[in-house]
Amino acid sequence: MTDVIFKVSSVHSTPVITDGKPGTEGNGYGFEGGRVLKLNGAYHLFTTEMSGLPIWTRTKLAYWRSKDSVHWERVSTLMESSGNFDGTDTHACLWSPMPTYDAINERWVLTYVCYRSKPNTRESWYRNYDGRIAMAVSQVKGPEGMAGPYEETGFLMEPGADSASWEGLMGVNSFYPYLTDSGWYAWYGSSIEVNGLAKAPELSGPWHRVSLREPASRHTENPIVSRLEDGRFVAFFDGCGHHQKMGYMVSSDGITWSEPILLEANDHPNRWWGLTRTPLGLVSEGNGKYALPFTAYNRNFYDIPGIWSAESDSVFDGYFASVGWMELELEKG
């Protein structure tokens, strides 16, 4: 068993972005996925907004900014899905915008998931399927180009002949690239709740799957990697239906990872959520202290009978995923 390395030191008692706040107009079901970065003293959020119906199909990739992590301003819509619901469009739904700075080319790069979408059958989930990873590049050079605009340049990973046998109908449903001492690696995921590793000589690729025989991690989604001050890598993930908690994995080299360690936050007295969803990455605040922004629903949608085969989106009436904020500290030892 891997030792716990983080403890929850505080939880903001309310969401920092939620329904009714400025900037959420037209956002029907809230936020999920993406990344928070801290740059030049400000916090920058890249996230998916579940803007309308069909739920999980009609989405926007949005950019928000804050000076203090509590008060947020919606800056722009980076991209918007087509909302196509007949399975013909690779960009019917857009998810998980992940910004990475390409120091060699001096450009911000945005990677994100593109799905086809059509009505589910009793046997299969088609709301988000045949996923592939797109890459877009900021048209403004240098660190100040974080806000974009971004222009899509192509796909980095797609389902196909080189897919691992454990990849499912969703195709590639998450992707997070990170630089190790051995070059570029990425966590990539597929249904159901499994993840593998890929590697590439450069951020722009070509990317090749490493975990071909079996996934590198199970019952985890959307791992997001950060490097601690002592050199260790941590990957925070969404525990989905199996765990219904967030958690993390630890690595000394970014290639060989520990078993999942669950983050025990559900018993915190400031808990406001019914179900945590996606961690938005670890933000270093110095001196062994970190912020963990995350998305979470006001109610637990796993309590809905037959959620994955529900015939009407009305079962999600009253559900909204907000952005929360908690503080973590490294355990001593």
Rank of each mutant, 00 (worst) to 15 (best):
R209V: 06
A235V: 11
P206M: 09
D253C: 01
G247M: 03
G196R: 00
N266E: 15
N222K: 13
R277D: 12
P223C: 06
W273Q: 02
L280Y: 14
H243Y: 15
Q244Y: 10
G281S: 09
L280N: 06
R277A: 10
Q244M: 06
W187Q: 07
S252M: 12
W273E: 10
S191A: 04
W187A: 03
G288K: 10
S217G: 08
W207T: 09
N222Q: 12
N195K: 06
N266W: 13
V250M: 10
G247L: 00
H208R: 14
I255R: 10
S258L: 05
W272G: 02
F236L: 13
W273P: 02
P215I: 12
G205N: 03
N222Y: 14
L197T: 07
V234D: 00
R271G: 11
R232A: 03
M246E: 08
K199G: 00
W207L: 06
S211N: 11
S284T: 09
A198M: 04
I192F: 14
E202K: 08
P215M: 03
W257K: 08
P215W: 13
L197N: 01
H219Q: 13
L282W: 08
S258W: 13
A216W: 09
Y188C: 05
G274F: 07
M249D: 05
E229G: 00
L203W: 12
P279H: 09
L275W: 07
L280W: 11
L197R: 03
E202F: 08
